[in-house]
């Protein structure tokens, strides 16, 4: 049987996330710290919901909030950020 990837970017499997939950992770950032799930190129935008579902077995889903949202919400070329608007 093939691997079942939850975090597509960092190639983190369902088993790895289950292990992190068993180790005491109760938040999405807790999973992130322990497995790297959600730290990849897409920043958890694809796997967050799947992880929330898995966490909801140990925690009320109402309390599972996304990790702090910080800019940039899209991958932005650094060269474009430093190229400020013309005054």
């Amino acid at each position: 049987m093939k691997e079942e990837y939850i975090c597509r970017c960092e190639e983190i499997t369902r088993e790895e996330i289950e292990r992190a939950i068993a180790e005491g992770a109760t938040t999405i950032s807790g999973i992130k710290k322990r497995t790297r799930a959600g730290m990849g190129l897409c920043q958890g935008r694809t796997c967050r919901r799947l992880i929330t579902q898995m966490l909801s077995k140990v925690k009320d889903p109402a309390e599972i909030t996304p990790p702090t949202s910080r800019p940039p919400v899209r991958a932005i070329k650094i060269g474009e950020i430093v190229e400020g608007e013309e005054d």
């Binding site: 070329k77 474009e80 950020i81 190229e83 400020g84 608007e85």
Partner: peptide
């Protein structure tokens, strides 16, 4: 609001 347009940073 911070955004990128035409390869530049804008607010």
């Amino acid at each position: 609001i911070a955004y990128i347009k035409d390869g530049r940073d804008h607010t």
